[in-house]
């Protein structure tokens, strides 16, 4: 059980067949002060690559795309009242949604933590 990352800076944590999804600490830093997070609806089916959530700062709205396919089984309702959690605790308290994954192979082409770290360092140059 370890974090996996996409090139769009989402993280996925798979426990059994349930994937928890959020955005990386690097991504929250790039976005600046998060003012609102639009989370999906529990019960909806989502396909890999579909829009999962929208993270808003004052002057920008960034779509978060689902790295996996499956059913949304839980969303982080606390973000509505406390969007700052995405800035303060991106990797844990700032999660967006939990998805019951239909195909765990979706995660195969994602980066592990070390690879993602190198990837991000490459971006900053």
């Amino acid at each position: 059980m370890s974090y996996k990352f996409t090139e769009d800076h989402e993280w996925v944590l798979l426990e059994g067949d349930v994937a928890t999804i959020g955005i990386s600490d690097y991504a929250q830093g790039q976005l600046g002060d998060v003012v609102y997070v639009e989370v999906p609806t529990v019960g909806d089916e989502i396909a890999k690559g579909d829009e999962l959530a929208v993270v808003e700062s004052v002057k920008a709205a960034s779509e978060v795309y689902s790295p996996v396919s499956g059913e949304i089984i839980d969303v982080n309702t606390e973000l509505e009242g406390a969007p700052t959690m995405v800035n303060e605790d991106a990797m844990e308290g700032g999660w967006f949604a939990k998805i019951r994954v239909t195909n765990s192979a979706d995660l195969d082409d994602l980066m592990d933590e070390a690879t993602y770290k190198t990837f991000v360092e490459g971006l900053d140059e």
Binding site: V35, Y36, E56, S57, V58, K59, A60, A61, E63
Partner: peptide
């Protein structure tokens, strides 16, 4: 709340 608006959200 201008992230609802066209100059930021464009086609969305």
């Amino acid at each position: 709340l201008s992230t609802r608006e066209q100059h930021i959200r464009r086609e969305k």
